[in-house]
Simulated scan of single mutants.
Amino acid sequence: MIEMKEVYKAYPNGVKALNGISVTIHPGEFVYVVGPSGAGKSTFIKMIYREEKPTKGQILINHKDLATIKEKEIPFVRRKIGVVFQDFKLLPKLTVFENVAFALEVIGEQPSVIKKRVLEVLDLVQLKHKARQFPDTLSGGEQQRVSIARSIVNNPDVVIADEPTGNLDPDTSWEVMKTLEEINNRGTTVVMATHNKEIVNTIKKRVIAIEDGIIVRDESRGEYGSYD
C-alpha cells in the first residue's frame, strides 16, 4: 500500500511542487496521475520511489516511511518498486537479455534464477525472440517494453511509470498500455503519470488529478480532463 499524509515539497529555488497532498493507493490498483505541466506530477511520482524526499509529511510504502528511512535502506525499498521511464534508460552496450538481467545481478541473484526469470518476463512483454539484440536495433515501443520487463523482473509490488508513452506513436502507445494492463491484472500496483488524454479516457482506471501541487480530483474510472 502507498500512503501519503500531508506531503509538502519545496525546492531550494523556491518552487513549491507539492502543497499538502494526502492520498492512499491500495494494492493492485491502476492509477493515472494527470494534470498540466508544472503541476507536481513528476514530484509526486518521484516521491514514491524516493528519488525525491518530502520537505514535510509522511510517505508510507508497505508501512515504511520513505521520509525518514536511512540512505542505506533505500536500495532495499526500491527492490519492491519497478520504474519505467519516458526515455527508456536502457544500457546501449548490453543486449535485451543483459539489460533485464542487470536488475537481478546487482542484488546478487543466482545465474540459473536470472536466466529463468529474465526469459519469463521477456515472454510476458513478447520480446523473448529479441533477447540477443541490442537496444538500438529495436523500435521505440520495443525498447519501452524491455524497460517494463526490467522494471518487473524483481517481482515488485509497485510499478511506477513516468510518461511511458510520451516518446511513442499512438499505435505503439497502445501496445505498451496492453503490457502495463497485463502486469496490473497479475496483481502488481501500477501508478502512471501521463499527458495522454486518449489513453486515460479509453482505458478507464482511477484518475488522480494534480494542479498547483494539490489533488483537485480523485475519481474511480475517471477521465483526463482539460489541460494545456
Rank of each mutant, 00 (worst) to 15 (best):
residue 6 E to W: 11
residue 131 A to P: 01
residue 134 F to S: 07
residue 202 T to M: 01
residue 80 K to P: 00
residue 33 V to E: 10
residue 58 Q to M: 10
residue 45 I to E: 00
residue 202 T to E: 13
residue 147 S to F: 13
residue 209 A to C: 08
residue 15 V to L: 06
residue 188 T to Q: 10
residue 139 S to W: 15
residue 61 I to F: 11
residue 27 P to I: 09
residue 151 S to A: 15
residue 50 R to H: 13
residue 161 A to L: 15
residue 196 N to F: 12
residue 28 G to M: 11
residue 141 G to H: 07
residue 219 E to G: 00
residue 182 E to Q: 09
residue 226 S to C: 03
residue 66 L to I: 08
residue 28 G to D: 11
residue 198 E to K: 11
residue 159 V to W: 15
residue 55 T to Q: 09
residue 209 A to Y: 00
residue 136 D to G: 01
residue 159 V to Y: 10
residue 111 P to S: 04
residue 88 F to S: 06
residue 214 I to S: 10
residue 139 S to R: 10
residue 38 G to I: 03
residue 52 E to T: 07
residue 110 Q to C: 02
residue 14 G to C: 14
residue 134 F to V: 06
residue 75 P to R: 02
residue 135 P to R: 08
residue 192 M to E: 04
residue 202 T to R: 13
residue 65 D to W: 03
residue 64 K to C: 06
residue 115 K to N: 12
residue 103 A to R: 05
residue 216 V to C: 03
residue 39 A to H: 12
residue 139 S to Y: 15
residue 41 K to F: 06
residue 49 Y to I: 06
residue 42 S to M: 08
residue 47 M to E: 15
residue 106 V to P: 12
residue 175 E to T: 13
residue 121 V to M: 01
residue 49 Y to D: 15
residue 194 T to S: 02
residue 51 E to F: 14
residue 176 V to E: 08
residue 54 P to A: 00
residue 12 P to W: 06
residue 165 T to H: 06
residue 88 F to W: 02
residue 88 F to E: 06
residue 103 A to I: 01
residue 173 S to M: 01
residue 206 R to F: 05
residue 155 N to G: 09
residue 34 V to F: 15
residue 227 Y to H: 02
residue 53 K to C: 13
residue 21 I to H: 11
residue 215 I to F: 05
residue 108 G to Q: 07
residue 107 I to L: 08
residue 129 H to R: 11
residue 180 L to H: 09
residue 36 P to G: 08
residue 123 D to T: 09
residue 27 P to K: 15
residue 173 S to T: 13
residue 176 V to I: 12
residue 79 R to A: 07
residue 47 M to C: 13
residue 135 P to K: 15
residue 84 V to G: 11
residue 17 A to I: 02
residue 144 Q to K: 12
residue 153 V to C: 13
residue 128 K to M: 07
residue 175 E to K: 15
residue 174 W to P: 12
residue 65 D to E: 14
residue 23 V to E: 13
residue 177 M to H: 04
residue 71 E to F: 06
residue 112 S to F: 02
residue 159 V to T: 08
residue 25 I to H: 10
residue 177 M to Q: 03
residue 85 F to G: 01
residue 191 V to Y: 02
residue 221 R to D: 14
residue 109 E to T: 00
residue 113 V to R: 06
residue 42 S to D: 08
residue 133 Q to L: 06
residue 83 V to F: 07
residue 89 K to V: 02
residue 205 K to H: 09
residue 173 S to P: 07
residue 143 Q to I: 09
residue 205 K to G: 10
